[in-house]
């Protein structure tokens, strides 16, 4: 077996392995058909979020009691809700909100988490212990409960939901980045840099961060999927977006009472959520396969 791997890597030996990794990235990513599809769907939703509201002129909040709870038709592609609002328009106008909540919360959690992870992994010792213990505490709250508790205190709003989900995302980043930083830190050239008098700040930004970027990107992508799910859950419970905001989770919540006669009210927002989350999951899986072929957990 060892011969086989030795044989395969021989052609790459002359090159810089990191360069090789990025060179091989496109090749592997393109080969991974499902990842490509995931990426395209992600782009599609981003496009929809930016240009959708311009293209769909129907006011998402325009009520029409005479036309309420209508099933999908040529007039209202996705039907209407209990106030006669056009669900298609609401879904389109809600896309941006969904993505913003996903992106921003993951960015908040990502920046804080990466910072914690790098500091913990780079300095080690007591700082490491303290930071990771704090992460353990955040992880001790099962599932959605931490985000729930935070929003319950801050009050239900989109901003607070983003903060809550951001905090909820911190430990995942911190742990992954800490692990990667530790392994980079052990490389000899980092010691050499220090010996040459480079500052910690410079080493971290010039040498450690670029090396831990791949797992961060992968984690961020997958984490957006989780964030969108969590946001939908919080809004469903009435702790996120408040009516009449066309938020998908809140739309589901509203649809609950009309489920029996108008199932489209829960089916359509649900499918929208599934598609976005699915796209980010597939995209993230593909990125991981392409960026980090060895890790598949």
């Amino acid at each position: 077996m060892s011969e086989q791997t030795a044989g395969a890597s021989k052609s790459e030996r002359a090159y810089n392995p990191r360069l090789e990794l990025y060179k091989g990235f496109w090749k592997r990513f393109k080969k991974n058909k499902s990842a490509l599809v995931g990426g395209i769907v992600v782009l599609f939703f981003i496009f929809l979020a930016i240009f959708g509201p311009m293209l769909v002129s129907t006011d998402p909040n325009a009520t029409d009691i005479t036309n309420k709870l209508q099933p999908p038709s040529a007039e209202n592609w996705f039907g209407t809700d209990n106030y006669g609002r056009d669900i298609f328009s609401r879904i389109i106008h809600g896309t941006g909100l969904t993505l913003i909540v996903g992106f921003v919360s993951v960015m908040i959690g990502g920046i804080i988490g990466v910072l914690f992870g790098i500091v913990a992994g780079y300095y080690g010792g007591r700082i490491d212990t303290i930071i990771m213990r704090i992460m353990d505490i955040l992880l001790a709250f099962p599932g959605i409960l931490l985000a729930l508790a935070i929003v319950s205190v801050l009050g239900g709003s989109i901003q607070n939901m983003i903060i809550a989900i951001g905090i909820f995302s911190i430990p995942a980043f911190a742990r992954i980045v800490r692990g990667s930083t530790l392994s980079v830190r052990r490389l000899e050239y980092i010691d050499a840099m220090r010996a040459l008098g480079a500052s910690d700040f410079r080493i971290i930004f010039k040498h450690v961060l670029p090396n831990v970027l791949s797992p961060i990107i992968v984690q961020a992508t997958l984490r957006i999927a989780t964030a969108v799910l969590t946001a939908a859950g919080l809004s469903f419970l009435g702790l996120g977006a408040q009516p009449p905001t066309p938020e998908w989770g809140a739309m589901l919540s509203a649809g609950r009472s009309y489920m029996a006669e108008s199932p489209h009210m829960i089916l359509i927002p649900g499918i929208a959520i599934v598609l976005v989350v699915l796209a980010f999951n597939i995209f993230g899986d593909g990125l991981r396969d392409a960026l980090d072929p060895k890790a598949n957990k």
């Binding site: 077996m1 060892s2 011969e3 030795a6 021989k10």
Partner: peptide, 21 residues
Amino acid sequence: ESGSGKSITSLSILRLLAENG
């Protein structure tokens, strides 16, 4: 030397090659 195919030869005899072999 490693990479000369000697181990693969022995695995071929018993047909214990990896899936892509």
